[in-house]
Each structure stands twice: as structure tokens, then as C-alpha cells.
């Protein structure tokens, strides 16, 4: 069986790749294109470490087939900073020490960015429920929530 030839857009750039039917978008991003910012923590949609945007929707890349992204637009953590300029969320995660080991951080950032684009002024409870699909085992979430709330303030101000 021939591989699927997929033409797609990732982080604004055109990409072409070949993949097997069973390969997930996460397999393609990591093993194929070596965009390793998206992490595999569970491969079952339970940890959120592979959070990416697909046509503007937050999804787990482990639950999307590579072949499905034909003609679609994918955004990953690798495009979050604007050149040397970190996104306010990235900056606030650093300032608030919102990461310890950092493996979950890309997923949290992608998910938090999707939240603030939809809801620029979320309550703490809204942030917690929105981010419930992103597991962090190090921080107890406290500093992550604070960083997101603080970034929201900054982003509303600018």
C-alpha cells in the first residue's frame, strides 16, 4: 500500500510529506519533520502535551491522522514566538516560574494561547477548566494559572 502524499501548511510554511495511514499528526511532526516541540506523553489524548492548532481549533496531535491534514493549517509551539520576541504567555511562564521540568510547557502554552484568543479575560476557574486537558505533574498548576492570568492582563492592555 502506497504511502499518503500530504500537502499542508505548518506554521505558515508549505510542507509536503509522505505518511502511512496509521501514522498520527504527532508522529509526522516529530519523527518525520522533527518538529519536536510537541511532546508525546500518552498518545491517547489524556495529557495534552502534543496540543497543536488545526484550522484554528485546539486539538491533540496524537488524535489526528497525518493523512487528515491534507490542505489544512497546523500551528505548533515552534511558531509561537515572533522571531526573537517571545509571546506574552511564554514570557509570563518564565517570569512566574510556571515550569519545572518543562515537558508539558509547549502543550500548556498552545492551549493557553487558544483560550486567550477566545476569551481575553477568563476567570481563574475558566482557566483551570480550559487547561484541564493538559497534565502537569511538577507544579501543582498554581504558577501556570497565575502566568496565564497575568499574560491575559498584559495582552488586554496592549
Amino acid at each position: 500500500m502506497a504511502k499518503h502524499h500530504v500537502t499542508t501548511t505548518i506554521n505558515g510554511d508549505p510542507y509536503e510529506f509522505l505518511c502511512e495511514a496509521e501514522e498520527t499528526l504527532l508522529d509526522v511532526l516529530r519523527d518525520g519533520l522533527q518538529l519536536t516541540g510537541s511532546k508525546e506523553g500518552c498518545a491517547s489524548g489524556d495529557c495534552g502535551a502534543c496540543s497543536v492548532m488545526l484550522d484554528g481549533r485546539l486539538v491533540c496531535a496524537c488524535l489526528v491522522l497525518g493523512a487528515e491534514v491534507e490542505g489544512r493549517e497546523v500551528e505548533t509551539i515552534e511558531s509561537m514566538a515572533d522571531g526573537e520576541q517571545l509571546h506574552p504567555l511564554q514570557q509570563k511562564f518564565l517570569e512566574h516560574a510556571a515550569l519545572q521540568c518543562g515537558i508539558c510547557t509547549p502543550g500548556f502554552l498552545v492551549a493557553a494561547k487558544a483560550l486567550l484568543e477566545k476569551n481575553p479575560d477568563p476567570t481563574e476557574t475558566e482557566v483551570r477548566y480550559w487547561l484541564a486537558g493538559n497534565l502537569c505533574r511538577c507544579t501543582g498548576y498554581d504558577k501556570i494559572i497565575r502566568a496565564v492570568m497575568d499574560a491575559a492582563v498584559d495582552m488586554r492592555g496592549s
Binding site: 516529530r30 509561537m80 514566538a81 511564554q90 518564565l94 518543562g102
Partner: peptide
Amino acid sequence: TRPLRPDGVDKVTGRAKFGADMY
């Protein structure tokens, strides 16, 4: 004091290489 961690930027941009990130 509370300075930013030296490995921080790599970890918020996805550049940091974890166990499975080596090819």
C-alpha cells in the same frame, strides 16, 4: 531573588531536547 532560569527560553519555545527528541 527570582531571576529567570537559564534554560527557560528553550523550554517555552519547544527547542529543549528531552529524551525522545534525539534523532
